[in-house]
């Protein structure tokens, strides 16, 4: 299990991470979310030992992360970088060797990854000749070649077209099935929501929300009730509900945010008594809703 305990890091007088604590169970897939400048990359760099926390601790399976542990980690940084003149295969082999693989073994695995990521036509070409998406696939191979037990992927989907994004999703699922623990950051919520078991939303260097999607939803203070048709009588019933806030009528329905604890059967009975109800639906907040609310971008 990865544990961050009250980790802090400043750059000069600017605090980047302010006492973040989180736990990532072994074998899980964890989404680290937050707006630009929230402290995600700094947090990831502290997990990897690239940056040393000013305060707090980072442990993996109860022990500090030393060089031997880091060797078993994989990393796909947000800012992609490759040796432009080195060939694709040589690059992948190099990073495999830096992670402790013997040259022959690294070569065999590199060939498998090249085939899997459909990079065969580029294996002997310099990385600078590849498209951005293909360069990213090379980096994914570099990060995963040594079968890491823990892997951090910072914005792994950026720059990938839908086909390659789907391919990456498959790769990440396979890594998860092989037992690897994954920490991802992405601004593409639908992909993160499909992939991750748990999430941590940070903003301004602080944890704003954390847990599984169900836990995040459970702690969400309101639910959106959608009712059709958008008649004045039904609207009046909804407006009279304690704590209800009109969400605006959209797509031909009434939408109201009501407190999460509002009992729905009595509300439905009152609506039916007031007029014909064609549709009554309680909509759960999406990860995007929770993210926007937690980061203060949306009420």
């Amino acid at each position: 299990m990865l544990v961050l305990d009250r980790v802090q890091r400043s750059f000069g007088s600017v605090p980047a991470v302010r006492g973040i604590s989180l736990e990532v169970p072994r074998g899980s897939t964890f989404g680290l979310l937050g707006p630009n400048g929230a402290g995600k990359t700094t947090t990831m760099r502290m997990i990897l030992g690239i940056l040393i926390p000013d305060a707090g601790t980072v442990t993996w399976n109860g022990a500090p992360i030393d060089d031997a542990v880091r060797r078993r980690f994989g990393y796909l940084p947000e800012e992609r970088g490759l040796y432009g003149k080195m060939t694709v295969r040589a690059q992948i082999v190099y990073f495999g060797r830096l992670h402790g693989l013997a040259e022959n073994e690294a070569g065999r695995r590199a060939d498998r990854w090249i085939e899997r990521l459909e990079l065969g036509a580029y294996a002997k070409r310099a990385c600078s000749e590849l498209s951005k998406g293909n360069q990213q696939k090379v980096q994914i191979a570099c990060a995963a070649l040594h079968d890491p037990e823990f892997i951090i992927l910072d914005e792994p989907f950026s720059g990938l077209d839908p086909v390659n994004a789907e391919m990456l999703l498959g790769v990440l699922r396979d890594l998860r099935e092989s037992g690897a623990t994954l920490v991802l950051s992405s601004h593409q919520m639908w992909q993160i929501e499909r992939l991750c078991d748990a999430f941590c939303i940070i903003a301004a260097g602080e944890v704003r929300a954390a847990g599984t999607l169900d836990e995040l939803r459970a702690s969400w203070p309101t639910r959106t009730i959608e009712v059709e048709p958008p008649s004045p009588a039904l609207a009046a019933v909804l407006a009279a509900e304690p704590g209800a806030v009109a969400h605006g009528a959209a797509n031909g329905c009434l939408a109201y945010d009501v407190p999460a604890a509002t009992p729905l059967p009595p509300l439905l009975r009152r609506l039916v008594a007031a007029g014909d109800v064609n549709r009554f639906e309680r909509r759960e907040p999406s990860l995007n809703d929770i993210y926007l609310a937690a980061t203060g971008d949306h009420a």
Partner: peptide, 17 residues
């Protein structure tokens, strides 16, 4: 400078000291 400007440096120092 090449490693820094090509941004590969971060990947390297995540792996080795």
């Amino acid at each position: 400078a090449e490693e820094k400007t090509s941004r590969i440096a971060e990947l390297l120092v995540a792996t080795v000291r």
